[in-house]
Structures are given as structure tokens and as C-alpha cells.
Amino acid sequence: MADKILDCKGLSCPEPVLRTKMAINELEAGQILEMSATDSGSANDIAAWAKRTGNELLESSEADGVYTFTIKKG
């Protein structure tokens, strides 16, 4: 399903955002990145980052302290 999987679990702000950006750079428009993180700030941060960079946050969820994001490259 996802074209790329990125594990940012255990990393603190700002690394999940920085690594997400680097991973998105490697994808083509329309491709999907799935990122997981344990930084609770990343729920808001990834949404803000996606809004500003024109990438689409398709899904954002949390289970057992792990936040999972599905992002479509814009």
C-alpha cells in the first residue's frame, strides 16, 4: 500500500518532521509515505507540516502511544 515506510519511533521533535521531509523528497507526486512516531507532538506537527508543504495527510491515528501517519506526496 505505502510506497515508503519511515520509522521515527523514539525520536524527539524536530526529527520526525525533518525525516518525513527527507523521505517525501525521495518519492514521486501521488506516492504514499507511511510514518510512525512516538513523539506525541508529531500529531499536530505533521499536520502543520503537511498543510505548509502541500502534501496531503490522508490518515493520522494513535494506538498504544504510536502515532501513524499516511501522507500522499503533493
Binding site: V17, L18, A48, T53
Partner: peptide, 12 residues
């Protein structure tokens, strides 16, 4: 450093 690197990731 955190704000500048994040700004760059936000395409600023």
C-alpha cells in the same frame, strides 16, 4: 537550530 531546520523542512 530546531526552528531553522524545521523551517527548511517546511519549505521556508
Amino acid at each position: 537550530l530546531i526552528l531553522a531546520s524545521t523551517a527548511a523542512a517546511m519549505e521556508m
